[in-house]
Design a protein around this nucleic acid. Sequence first.
DNA 1: CTGAAAGCGCTTACAG
DNA 2: CTGAAAGCGCTTACAG
Lengths: 334, 334
Amino acid sequence: MTSIKDVAKLAGVSTATVSRTLSDPELVSQKTRSKVLNAVKDSGYIANSLARSFRTRKSDTVVVLVPDISNPFYSNIIQGIESEAKLKGYRVMLGDTQMDQERALSYASMVQQRQADGIILLGADIPFVVGSEGDTSVENWPPMIMGCEYTDLGLPTVRIDNVSAAMDATDHLISLGHKHIAYINGPKNSPLSKDRLKGYRESHQRAGIEALDDLLEVGDYSLQSGVTAMKRLLNADVRPTAVFAANDEMAIGALKSIKEAGLSAPDDISIVGFDDIRFADFCDPPLTTIHQPRADIGRALMQLMYQILSDEPLETNEVVLPHALVVRESTGRV
Amino acid sequence: MTSIKDVAKLAGVSTATVSRTLSDPELVSQKTRSKVLNAVKDSGYIANSLARSFRTRKSDTVVVLVPDISNPFYSNIIQGIESEAKLKGYRVMLGDTQMDQERALSYASMVQQRQADGIILLGADIPFVVGSEGDTSVENWPPMIMGCEYTDLGLPTVRIDNVSAAMDATDHLISLGHKHIAYINGPKNSPLSKDRLKGYRESHQRAGIEALDDLLEVGDYSLQSGVTAMKRLLNADVRPTAVFAANDEMAIGALKSIKEAGLSAPDDISIVGFDDIRFADFCDPPLTTIHQPRADIGRALMQLMYQILSDEPLETNEVVLPHALVVRESTGRV
DNA sequence: CTGAAAGCGCTTACAG
DNA sequence: CTGAAAGCGCTTACAG
C-alpha cells in the first residue's frame, strides 16, 4: 500500500507538503504542486481516508435511519439525500431500523464512534439513548434531524404541511359530494398522524359534515393493514362512499379489499392515498393521492445537515415544502 | 472525548490491557477484566472504531452497490444482507449507482481507501477500473461478489437458475394452451437476460411451438418500459394471448397498457411477471410470477462475503438458490 | 497475565 | 512556501 510517505520520497518533498497539496493546494507553490501531483500519479497513491477521518475527526458521512427500506416511500427521499450529499462531499450510510430501537441505537452510535458526523431520521423513532441516557435536551444530542415526521422536541425537520395536505385530500372528496368519508390513519401517536387527522376533521368541520368515529381506522402503513382496515370499514354500520388513507400502500391494500368485496373504485367507493409513490399511477384505477416532493425533501435534509455540520446558523428549524393533490381515477362523484 | 487512556488511568492498568479486555477478554485475568470493565462504565467510554479500523486495517463494512434503490426488487435483498451482516458484526454501506459508472467507482474506491472491506454488486455493472485500469483478472480486484446477476469473469455469485425459472414461467403459459407468448426481456447484453430468453425459447422448443421474433421485446425493468413494450405488442401482426415479462414492474406496466387498450387480463391476455415483489399480490389481477427468495439471496451474499473476507475457502463460486412459480390470477386458459 | 513502546497514515500548529 | 515533529486512539509483537 503506497502511503503519503512514498509520494513524498518520490517527489522529494516532505509528507506535510504532500498532504497540503492534496487537501489545500493553495498553500503550495505551483511548482511543488505539480511535482507532487506527478508523484501521486506515478506511485498510484490512493489516500487512506480512514486515516484522514481519524486525524481530522470528521468522517464526512451521515447516517440515514429508515424504518423500513422496502417501503418505497423512502427510496426517493434517500436518493435526494444521496445526490445532495455527493455534491457536498459527503457519504451516506443507510441504516434499516426495522422499527427496532436496538438497531436504531447501534446505527446512531456510529456518530459517537466517529464513524459518522450526523444522523438523518426518516420516520419518527428517535434513538433516544443517543446522548446520556434519557437526556431529552436536544442540545446534548449528536447532530440529528428528521424528515417528513417531526417531534415536539425541537429537532430540525423537513416536511410538508400535513394538516393542509390532509385537508386538500378531504376537501377533494367532499367537493365530489361525499359525506361518509373514512380515514385510515397511520400509527396513532405520531405528530404526523395527528396532523393529518386534524386536517381530515377540519375539512369536515368547515363543510359542516360530521366526521364519524366509526369511519376512523388505524393502520401501520403496510399494504396488509390497508386490506384489514378496509374490511372493517366495509362492515361498518355506515358504509363509507369514500376512503382517505394516510399512505398509498394502505390505499392500495384498501383497493384490494374493495375489489374482493365485489365493489369497484371509484364507482362504489372513491379512494385517496398519500405520498404519490411510483406505483400509484399504475394501480387500477390509478390512485388519486397527495404528492410529496420526496427528492426535494431529501435534498433539503442534506442541505440542512450540511449547515449544521458546518456550524452555519439555521434560519429555521422547520423547512416546510409544498405538497400537491394529484387527481387520478380512483375518485369520482358520489 | 474519553479515550482508552482515560480508562487505563481510572482502572490503574495499561492501555494495552484495556484494549485486550475490550477486544480479546480471554487474554486478561478475571480480576483485571472487571476492574477495566468498571472503569469503562464509570468513564462512559465509547470506543473510537475509526481508530480501530485504521489500526487493524479492517473496516468491518461492506459496500452494497445497487443500480437503483427505488426499485423494490432490491430492498429485500438488502435487508437480507443487512441482517446477516449484523450477525457477523459487519456494517452495510449502501451505494445507489443510478447505473452510473462514475458513481459506482466512487463507492468501489471505498475499499481502496480502507473504508470498506468488500463490495457486493446487485446488478450487472462492474465498476471496472477498480483494480489497475482495465485489469480483468478477478484476482487483482478487491473482494467483490455479485447478486442475482452474474458474469463470465468468475466473480462469485448468488442467484437463482434463470434458465429454468424462465422455462417454468413459459411452461405454465403453454400448459394453459397459449401458443403466442410474448416475452419482454431485460437489457439485452446481461447474462441474466440471455438466460431467461434461453429458458423462454427452450420451453417453446420442447413444446414444439415456434417462438416468434415479433413477440420479443426489450425493456429496462421500469414500469414505463413495460407500458411501452406492451403497446408495441398490441400492434404486432400476431397479437399475443400471453405475455411473460422479465420482472414484475414491466409486467405491471404491461397490465396498464392492456387495460388502456380496453382489454383485460387474464381474459384477453395472460401475464406472468418475475421476482414476486410485494406489489405483485396487490395488482389487479394479482400477478402470477416467479418468486425469487430475495432475503435468502441477501443472506447468502453476506455469508459468502464473510467467507471471502475471513479467507475461508469457498466450496463454490456459484450459489444457486431455488425459485418458485407463484400462480395468481393474471394467467388463464387461452 | 501485563506493560512499554512502536506504529498505522494522516494533518497541522510551529518555526523558519 | 516548506519541513520537522507531535499526535489523533487504537493494537500488537515483544519482553518479562
